[in-house]
């Protein structure tokens, strides 16, 4: 079968890309060190990851199509770097940035690219039923797998058109779902253990360079870690903070619950903004507006209260420990009494 190399350059996560890359898998890294395509691919792999860390998105220019071999190969190399650096925060940043790149490309591209990816990734879907309809149908289980509920109410299943197991989505919505699917696949792939010791030549150099970029980036977030006294936080909030710190995109409800709680605990808008910066989809202006709104500094000037234990339970966000027994509100949580702490320790 003829391989569309340009397509693989745009979407190097495709199954088809694997067979294209097979020729490289038979050669050792040492042998590849002198291969020009390979050297450029490593360079582009490093660039992919750096762009993800610094700009939260990965570029795609037309010249990438000219050097298609390096472009395709740079993707598994970047994944290998992420796997070797073995940090969930980085995994999320990289996977989100790759997902965004795919979304931008699909928005620009024809329907055929989208359908090709869907088929390649074995996602069950139907094209629009007739020319008057522009809605695709996607199996509801596939729809739920990419967790679109995190993106707001319009994505919740309760607000979707669903019939006989299929959810109706527009081309743009489907592109977003596909990009989220790609993100999840990359997260999975980057969890396969890779030993950095096995890297040599350009790969080793690239790894060292990225490790240093990543370390200095992470230092920026140390401030929040020092500032908070999470030991007195209830387990529901500790979980949200830990997910936030590991670079996971929290849902609207989750983020709102966390922010209102931290505000009520006396944290400043700036401190909270530092924590939110670890979100892969962080947008300073939007996040600041939301935090200030919840703090009562904007709009209606109403300061919002954190949800009660009952509400947290109904959101499925309550993970009680033994000190949650007699409280009705996360703010009432006092944790392990200090005397008990010292006794246990």
């Amino acid at each position: 079968m003829e391989v569309n190399v340009f397509l693989l350059a745009k979407y190097p996560f495709l199954e088809e890309a694997k067979s294209f890359l097979e020729s490289y898998s038979t050669v050792s890294f040492e042998d590849l060190s002198s291969d020009e395509d390979y050297v450029r691919a490593v360079k582009r792999g490093v660039e992919r990851l750096k762009e993800a860390i610094v700009f939260k998105k990965i570029s795609f220019k037309n010249e990438n199509l000219i050097d298609f071999k390096a472009e395709v190969l740079s993707f598994p190399i970047a994944v290998a770097f992420v796997a070797a650096l073995n940090d969930d925060f980085l995994r999320n940043i990289f996977a989100t940035a790759e997902g965004k790149r795919v979304y931008e490309l699909l928005k620009r591209d024809s329907y055929s690219d989208l359908e090709l990816i869907l088929k390649d990734q074995k996602i069950k879907f139907y094209s629009p039923e007739d020319p008057s309809s522009s809605l695709y149908r996607i199996a509801f289980s596939e729809y739920l797998k990419v967790s679109p509920q995190k993106w707001g109410k319009t994505w919740k299943l309760v607000n979707r058109q669903i019939k006989r197991g299929f959810v109706y989505v527009s081309k743009e919505e489907l592109s977003r779902l596909v990009s989220e699917h790609v993100k999840n696949r990359i997260l999975e792939r980057s969890r396969h253990p890779v030993d950095a010791e096995s890297f040599s030549g350009p790969l080793r150099e690239g790894y060292v360079e990225l490790k240093s970029t990543w370390e200095s980036y992470k230092l920026k977030f140390a401030k929040f870690n020092k500032g908070s006294s999470e030991s007195s936080f209830p387990p529901c909030m500790v979980r949200l903070i830990s997910r936030q710190k590991s670079g996971e995109n929290l849902s609207h409800v989750e983020r709102r619950s966390l922010v209102t709680y931290l505000l009520a605990k006396g944290q400043s808008v700036e401190e909270i903004m530092t924590l939110l910066k670890s979100s892969p989809d962080f947008k300073e202006s939007i996040a600041r507006y939301q935090v200030e709104h919840l703090a009562g500094l904007r709009g209606s000037r109403k300061k919002y209260s954190p949800p009660s234990c009952e509400t947290m339970k109904s959101y499925g966000l309550c993970f009680p420990d033994e000190w949650c027994k007699n409280i009705k509100h996360p703010l009432q949580y006092r944790g392990k009494p200090s005397s008990q702490t010292s006794k246990d320790e």
Binding site: F140, S141, S147, I162
Partner: peptide, 27 residues
């Protein structure tokens, strides 16, 4: 088979669908 593939988190969406949690009726 289709429900066997659904994780615990995804079940929450089905629950909300039935309980009409966060429904936007004007949709």
């Amino acid at each position: 088979q289709v429900f066997r593939e659904i994780s615990q988190d995804e079940r929450r969406e089905i629950i909300d669908f039935l309980l009409l949690n966060e429904l936007q009726p004007n949709f």
